[in-house]
Nucleic acid binder design. Structure first.
Length: 792
DNA sequence: CAGTGAGCGAGCTTCCGCTTGACTT
């Protein structure tokens, strides 16, 4: 059938196929047979220089591409193999980046166009690959140009905005098309939260006794009451009212399964259901992919291959029966989706359980269930609503019950929710009643409820928002979240809630009573919160570069990239159009001279010294400054500085709070004849005693810590130190067995040696055994010593 | 690891998207 592949069996490696990932290379090599050698490019092999701008503006934005050092060896290997091969098949992904990878390969390996073919396949099956090989094409230079435009635009934005921040705000900051919008989302959400005013209303719930005198029916007033007065007025009517069934209606409801996983939805569900962080999910998925258990994990496609659809159908029919199966094809609606891959699914859907770590098993199970459910029938429900009249009032109560008539896909999988209020209010079956039945009121309770402030973003919900806006790609969601935290624009923070009183008014046995209860509101754990730096940088960029920070900026430039890909626009023209507007603003902004630093705020005057007090972003973060810098007068006293404490913000710190910071470092007292000092250092609040530093825990402040508390911390630290040491050797004082962050290890003459897992009781290691471990470790390339800053 | 910062100046920092190792004291 494919005689083509059977030719030249004796000549080895007539063909070289280059794909992007080694796992993929391994799989397709099996399908192609001996005439084909399959190698991997490991992603891009060329890029702009990392430390230079690398775009020649004068020369029509010519990019200067280089092969990164860590790719040089690989590229020379590829080159050598390409030279030997009769035909080189470039088989990178079909999207913009994939096309560019093929083009860079062709250029860097200096491939002969006559002997080079570009192929793509949409699924890794023998047929698909053989079909691809039979229908090769050339490199699509328009698509490549669209990628070059994308690359050059990102470099221009990133490398021209960041230096302005170094100058105006703080060194080593960064800005970019994706990360700056991510920060903006978080900053604006935080401001929305602070501006939010909760509105109160009363929710009225009544419990009725049915005519049989036994069954209870719980119903809620169809609207909320605004004020206490309204509640009292209504409850007084109810006190004397009769209640009757007004109407009973049932209507069928359907629920459909969620589509198969993309990178973004996998990250969201793994966070909701398994509690994994975005990067954790990606690491686990990578291992599943490399082990051959799932398809590629960086994708924006919800599409399943015909093969997978067939396998899912078979699995559903076999396990659940025909009624549970429904063929579904999903289409991707995300802006800017490129669909180079399939959705994330098990490679073999029959594979119910896999080997591996517990985490891998759980993620695999999640992926498998989601995939199967996506091809299953709708769940069918029946919702019954009973309306109840109140004599003397036009208001009605409603009791709602939902009954699952057919579980369908819910048998396998139910999608998680981010809404913490929506706690699966299970309205079960309602008791049987008839219209006009009279109901007896058991009790009625009006509870004051408040509107909810907008939620802070989690990593996963931020990814979802970015994807909705078409900003970022599956391969960058996790790194972007890392970057904005590394720059200290945002942090995962816990917020303590505040106590809020609320009123409950009850009508029981014809008696009205009012009680005040308390609840905690606004508490948050592990949510993305902007730092002062993040807010100052965001405000600065919003002032001078609103176009780049616009939520539609990416979507707009994507339209241009599409036009380039369709040969309707030259990529350099598109870049020129942007640059002609953007660069002058860069120049102008860099030249703006301001009396005060960006984001600086004057709080007032220190009543003791009469000096002004400022807060701003200093070289090391948020800082308070006492006294203005006198540039002209060299003899003038220098201003004093004090870092803000965690939890304080330059946005809202008061003069009084700021002045207190200058009390640090402060002498707490004397212990064992040595002074105890409290302060704030590079790593947060600390106390120092006998030249040893001890961190102050969150619940205490260096401003108020007492000598007693400090002595407690010192004792605690000593106890911990003692625990850290498992064993010391009298014969060899240089050797010690310690318990460290990564488990027990041997410290010997400045080096550390890991104790193999085979040792069950590290505490009982003998000197001989320990020496043996050290000697064996010495044979391998020696573990690097931690580079420590030398004190001079 | 730790009380940092306006004296001066050189040299450094930075983007987004493809992909995995080599590291783990």
């Amino acid at each position: 059938m494919h005689s083509f592949f059977n030719r030249n069996i004796k000549n080895m490696q007539k063909n070289l196929v280059i794909v992007e990932s080694p796992a993929k290379a391994k799989t397709i090599e099996k399908f192609l047979g001996k005439d084909f050698k399959v190698m991997s490019s490991y992603g891009h092999i060329r890029d702009l220089k990392t430390k230079e701008f690398s775009i020649d503006i004068e020369n029509n934005y010519k990019p200067e591409y280089v092969i990164p050092d860590d790719k040089k060896k690989l590229v020379s290997e590829l080159k050598a193999e390409a030279k030997k091969a009769e035909t080189v098949w470039l088989a990178s992904d079909e999207d913009r980046e994939g096309e560019a990878i093929s083009w860079h390969l062709a250029e860097a390996l200096k491939l002969d166009p006559e002997r080079t073919k570009r192929i793509v396949f949409h699924e890794i099956t023998k047929n698909a690959i053989l079909h691809a090989v039979e229908t090769p094409r050339n490199i699509d230079i328009n698509l490549v140009n669209a990628q070059q435009a994308r690359r050059v635009l990102d470099r221009i934005v990133g490398f021209q905005l960041s230096p302005i921040l170094w100058k105006k705000v703080k060194p080593a900051l960064s800005a970019g098309r994706v990360q700056s919008v991510a920060v903006r989302l978080i900053v604006e959400r935080e401001r929305d939260i602070h501006a939010f005013v909760a509105e109160a209303s009363f929710r009225v719930i009544a419990e009725f006794i049915l005519p049989d005198g036994l069954a209870l029916l719980k119903a809620e007033l169809h609207k909320r009451l605004k004020t206490k007065e309204e509640v009292y007025a209504f409850l007084r009517i109810c006190e004397k009212a009769t209640f009757s069934v007004d109407d009973i209606s049932t209507k069928p409801l359907k629920k459909s399964p969620a589509p198969p996983f993309t990178t973004s939805t996998l990250q969201q569900e793994a966070a909701r259901k398994l509690g994994y962080s975005v990067s954790q999910t990606m690491m686990i998925a990578q291992r599943l992919y490399e082990s051959g258990f799932i398809t590629y994990m960086r994708t924006d496609s919800v599409n399943l291959s015909d093969l997978a659809l067939g396998a899912a159908k078979e699995a559903i029919l076999k396990t659940y029966g025909e009624r549970y199966y429904r063929f579904r094809r999903y289409s991707t609606k995300t802006k800017g989706a490129q669909e180079a891959h399939e959705a994330i699914r098990p490679t073999y859907i029959d594979n119910e359980a896999i080997g591996g770590t517990a985490q891998e098993k759980r993620l695999y199970e999640l992926i498998r269930k989601r995939t199967i459910a996506s091809q299953m029938a709708d769940a069918e429900l029946e919702r019954t609503t009973i309306l109840i009249n109140v004599s003397g009032s036009k208001e009605k109560f409603a009791a709602v019950g939902e009954v699952l008539v057919f579980d369908g896909f819910l048998q396998v999988y139910r999608e998680g929710t981010d809404d913490e209020n929506e706690k699966e209010q299970e309205n079960g079956l309602l008791p049987p009643v008839n219209v006009n039945d009279l109901l007896k009121l058991k009790d009625m309770v009006a509870t004051e409820r408040f509107t909810q402030r907008p939620p802070r973003y989690t990593e996963a919900s931020l990814v979802r928002r970015l994807e909705e806006l078409g900003i970022g790609r599956p391969s960058t969601y996790a790194p972007t979240i890392q970057t904005i935290q590394n720059r200290e624009y945002v942090e995962k923070a816990d917020k303590e809630g505040a106590e809020r009183p609320y009123t409950v008014i009850a009508l029981v046995n014809h008696k009205l009573s009012e009680t005040e209860k308390r609840e905690i509101t606004g508490a948050d754990r592990n949510k993305l919160t902007p730092t002062d730096t993040g807010m100052v940088v965001n405000d600065f960029l919003m002032t001078y570069f609103p176009d780049v920070l616009d939520y539609n900026f990416t979507a707009n430039v994507e339209k241009e990239f599409d036009a380039i890909a369709e040969d309707q626009m030259e990529w350099t023209k598109a870049i020129d159009k942007f640059y002609k507007v953007f660069h002058p603003i860069v120049e102008k902004t860099a030249a703006v001279k301001t009396e005060h630093k960006v984001g600086e705020r004057e709080l007032g005057t220190d009543p003791e010294t009469g000096k002004p007090v400022f807060v701003k972003i200093g070289r090391f973060g948020p800082v308070a400054q006492l006294g203005a810098a006198k540039v002209d007068d060299k003899d003038a006293p220098k201003p004093q500085f004090a870092s803000l404490m965690k939890g304080q913000s330059i946005e809202n710190i008061t003069l009084k709070e700021a002045l207190k910071l200058f009390d640090l470092p402060r002498t707490v007292g004397e212990s064992e004849g040595k002074t105890v000092v409290a302060g704030i250092g590079r790593f947060g609040p600390f106390i120092r005693h006998d030249n040893k530093f001890i961190s102050i825990p969150k619940d205490k402040s260096p401003l108020t810590i007492t000598l007693d508390e400090a002595e407690g911390l010192i004792a605690e630290k000593r106890a911990k130190e003692a625990q850290r040491s498992f064993k010391k050797f009298d014969e060899e004082p240089d050797m010690e067995i310690l318990n460290g962050r990564f488990g027990p290890y041997i410290a010997y003459k400045g080096s550390n040696y890991k104790i193999p897992k085979t040792v069950k009781e590290p505490k009982e290691l003998t000197l001989e055994e320990a020496t043996k471990i050290i000697n064996e470790a010495g044979k391998k390339p020696a573990a690097k010593k931690q580079t420590k800053k030398k004190k001079s």
